[in-house]
Write a protein that binds this DNA or RNA. Structure first.
Lengths: 350, 350
DNA sequence: TTTATGAAGATTATCGTTAATGTATATCGT
DNA sequence: ACGATATACATTAACGATAATCTTCATAAA
């Protein structure tokens, strides 16, 4: 029954020839579309299995206009933040029949635009974009090309596009309050570069917690080593200026630092351990994202948990709504945050 | 000149209509294939640009039989090892015109096989596979399906398939020797689970360094918490048994541990910091992969650098040879390793 | 009996490219 | 001036699937 296939994979036509049905019937039978009798359907499916049939997604995509591919444009997979969330995205996408094309923008707007065009040329059904600092053009182009996009983890302003973010302001507020509760009264907010709007939101949370606790203005420090005009933030040397600023902050009596994200917080922690000028400094450190708790890396870093799994799920489902033609106005989904204490801010003392 | 396009993206036919040439001529002109005059070529390309043409990769793939897609099957993107190397793979692939489909096997052979079939259904030109502990079936199936594969970072035996790996034995030897040079004489080799052949290779390196330095047999410890029959290593609780074993090793006077990879080494380091039973233990730790040095994460962990970029380049280029039809016998490319000292093994003392 | 309804398939027409041929005109050697 | 080679295109035929539109033939309703 099963013939020797001279070359190439089995096609619908091969099954049609084998079973005597038409190609169309075979196609419908394999996809359980109606108008095919139970018996026929079963027989065709069995034959397909025996012959080792495997759908050609390319052909299917061309005809149906759906690739079942979502492109993720993230900054870089070596950053655990992106790694972890991509991991989650991948399994959720797979559960819904989608595959993930992964591209890295290196936080560069120009590269990001290029990648977006590639994603469009490949006819991705949609894009999950972790935007850079200047993604307006990318967004505009994708709108032209009619490729659905959901902005992930960062925002370009309220309701500019579909958007899934953590509750940034509240997270920053919680983090700062945590420092304060641990007895810290001279606080700093450190961010490697000014991630549009996310930075502003977290700054607001930082300041409002300071306000609430009556921290005087001169005890509220901020620092952003990489200038906001930079088109290539990742290749900027933020270490030297950051170290200098840390030394300065130490002199100024800073005793608590809220760092923009966990990855940066780790840099800071390692500087604290390694730089002789910082040795013995009693300073509380708290990050954001809770990347180690989400998966691996047990360390003592306090952080703000971002519910990555929820963000990933919401992102994919929002994107799917668009893919299926929703024309509702852009929606911003704010995911809940939660403080996680691991001791890097010091013990309660009093 | 540029018309209002009523719907959908511009196609070759639109350009053909606009310029008066045939579809085929337009196609050839845009790809700079021969048999088209300079003038025509230029004119067509200009028109295409003006009309905002963008090739439909799906249609192109269907006809040409090439998708220009490489599927990466890695364990999980939340593991920085995979994250970093995927990052590198992505940029090298992009430079060669390939996009990356990223899938995560979670180190599970069954899931891996499924993913491989998906990759085949999507007609990936080839697969970069970071194999699980039981990838023989996957490999066999891919051979049936005639999808080129290169095994990455791990080996299933010498020349079973194309393979790009680090020089595991030498790396382990260097790591162990490093411990010994730092005055460590009671050594252990710790590996979360028994990654086929890679484990054996590193064990060999460990033992040969012990041998060379005259470390007595009773001072050569090994431990693998997760049993090798496990089909789902990542969800196994390795922490409890590992902690217990660390406590035991401490009692037994172990003073140096070579850990299978950096990620695991970090777990160990954090246990050393956090578990009261381990407090104050003077033990040298060295990992493998040098993941932090490759990109971020400055910590004090000694490690063995694996030249990720070279591995990635070699992997992609080897795969491309296969994609282009090479029928040479399977090749194993062994990439050089290099010791990196950051102090976690202690100072030289004598 | 006649017509409407429906089930179960078959036909046919694309999807947007690229590969394999065809063809007309110009150029060339002899 | 003849056929031979090139040049620069046009025509035609896939690639493998899916969608839209027919056919049948049987059964039910009128």
């Amino acid at each position: 029954m099963a013939e020797i296939k001279p070359k190439g994979p089995v096609t619908l036509q091969d099954i049609a020839r084998e079973t005597g049905y038409s190609v169309n019937t075979v196609s419908r039978a394999l996809r359980n579309k109606g108008d095919i009798s139970q018996a026929t359907c079963a027989r065709i499916q069995r034959t397909a299995r025996e012959m080792g049939y495997m759908v050609n997604q390319i052909a299917s995509s061309l005809r149906s206009g759906r690739t079942k591919i979502i492109t993720v444009i993230a900054g870089s997979m070596s950053n655990p933040f992106y790694g972890i969330i991509t991991d989650t995205l991948q399994s959720i996408a797979a559960a819904r029949g989608y595959s993930l094309l992964v591209m890295c923008s290196r936080e560069r707007p120009d590269l990001e635009l290029e990648l977006a065009e590639m994603a469009a040329a490949r006819r991705s059904d949609g894009i999950l974009l972790f935007p850079t600092n200047a993604s307006a053009r990318t967004l505009e182009r994708l709108r032209e090309l009619k490729v659905p996009v959901v902005l992930m983890a960062r925002t370009l302003g309220d309701d500019v596009a579909d958007n899934v973010i953590a509750d940034e302001t509240r997270g920053a507020y919680l983090a700062t309050r945590h420092l304060i509760e641990r007895g810290r009264r001279n606080l700093a907010f450190l961010s490697q570069y000014r991630i549009v709007f996310s930075y502003e939101k977290r700054l607001r949370g930082f300041l409002s917690a300071c306000e609430e606790a009556g921290i005087p203005e001169q005890n509220r420090h901020t620092f952003v080593p990489v200038p906001s005009t930079t088109q290539d933030p990742l290749s900027w040397d933020w270490r030297t200026p950051t170290l200098e600023r840390l030394i300065q902050w130490r002199r100024e009596g800073v005793d608590g630092i809220f760092v923009f994200c966990d990855v940066e917080a780790w840099y800071v922690q390692s500087m604290l351990q390694q730089a002789p000028e910082l040795a013995g400094w009693d300073v509380g450190i708290i990050g954001f994202d809770n990347i180690e708790g989400a998966q691996h890396f047990p360390t003592g870093l306090c952080s703000v948990d971002c519910a990555f799994e929820e963000m990933a799920t919401r992102g994919i489902d929002l994107l799917r709504e668009r893919i299926h033609g929703s024309t509702l106005p852009p929606k911003t989904i704010v995911c809940p945050v939660r403080l996680v204490c691991r001791g890097s801010c010091g013990r309660l003392e009093d």
